[in-house]
Simulated scan of single mutants.
Amino acid sequence: MLRTAVASALLLLGGWAAAGWLTYDFQVWTDEGARRLQVALRPVEAPPVSVQGPAGSSHLAALLAEVGGATIVNFVYTRCVTVCLSLGGGFQQLQAALQADRAAGSASRVGLLSISFDNARDDPAALQAYAQRLRADPALWRFVRVPDTAQQQHLLRTLGVVVTPDGRGDFEHNAALLVFDARARMVRIFDLAEQQLALDFARHLSARSP
């Protein structure tokens, strides 16, 4: 009986230790939670990819550095009628908050960037039309794509963005708000419902930037 009790206790302790290791001392319980914690602990540098949008071609790192503080990034495609509607609406609210900051004379160095993963349809003209539909302020909110397919896939993998064609011309994809610093590093990931937290963090980050 005693031997059984001791063995059970050891198994319990072993399971507890394993659970603690797998969940970073019980801070996270899902793969996505682990990914977000990893990013917070070790920022992910954006790979050197070329981007293209209505304003012309550039490099992603240069585009992120132009803001000088922080950039909130989402991944979309312009024909999406599901989660991208929420992403677009959320960015409209973030844009309104940044415009209010500017009007109040306390403009922060925070920008918004939407990156399309639908190269077949989202050329610069389509991105421009999409931006106009969303009433995007080009001084605050930019739209680009990564025209090279290999570079695009590398970017998606590096940032943990999952995009799967559904066979009908649309895509299934995860959605989040990715915050980058001026050094083109992804430093935080927020849920769509956490857009205020994302904005507050980006403001704080921009205030700390030189």
Rank of each mutant, 00 (worst) to 15 (best):
D122T: 12
A61Q: 10
L192R: 13
R157N: 00
A17W: 14
A40M: 09
G15A: 15
A207K: 10
I115P: 02
P54N: 05
G90H: 05
A19L: 15
F143L: 15
W141C: 02
L178K: 09
V162N: 11
L140E: 03
Q132S: 12
Q27Y: 02
Q93F: 12
L127H: 09
G15H: 00
E194T: 05
A126I: 03
Q195T: 09
V44E: 01
A7K: 13
E194W: 08
I189H: 01
V76L: 13
V161K: 09
S106I: 13
E45S: 06
G111D: 08
T158G: 06
Q52P: 00
D191L: 09
P54Y: 10
G89R: 05
R35C: 06
R79N: 12
D31A: 15
V81W: 00
N119F: 04
D166Q: 07
G53F: 08
L87A: 01
R102E: 13
Q132Y: 08
F91K: 05
V39D: 02
H59K: 04
L87M: 12
V187I: 05
I72T: 07
S108R: 12
R142P: 02
T30W: 09
R183A: 14
V67Y: 01
C80V: 14
G15T: 11
L87W: 07
T23W: 00
L134F: 07
F180T: 03
V28H: 01
F143N: 04
N174E: 09
A100F: 06
A70S: 00
L41T: 03
D25H: 03
Q99V: 11
L112F: 06
L98D: 00
A207L: 13
D137R: 04
L94V: 14
W16R: 05
S50N: 09
V144I: 10
P138G: 01
A40R: 11
S114I: 05
M186T: 04
V110F: 10
V83I: 15
V163P: 07
V6Y: 05
W141S: 02
S58Y: 09
F91E: 11
P210A: 13
Y24F: 14
T71I: 05
D122W: 07
V110G: 02
A103H: 03
L63V: 13
G105N: 10
D123S: 11
A129P: 00
S57A: 14
V6P: 01
A18P: 04
R135E: 14
G33F: 04
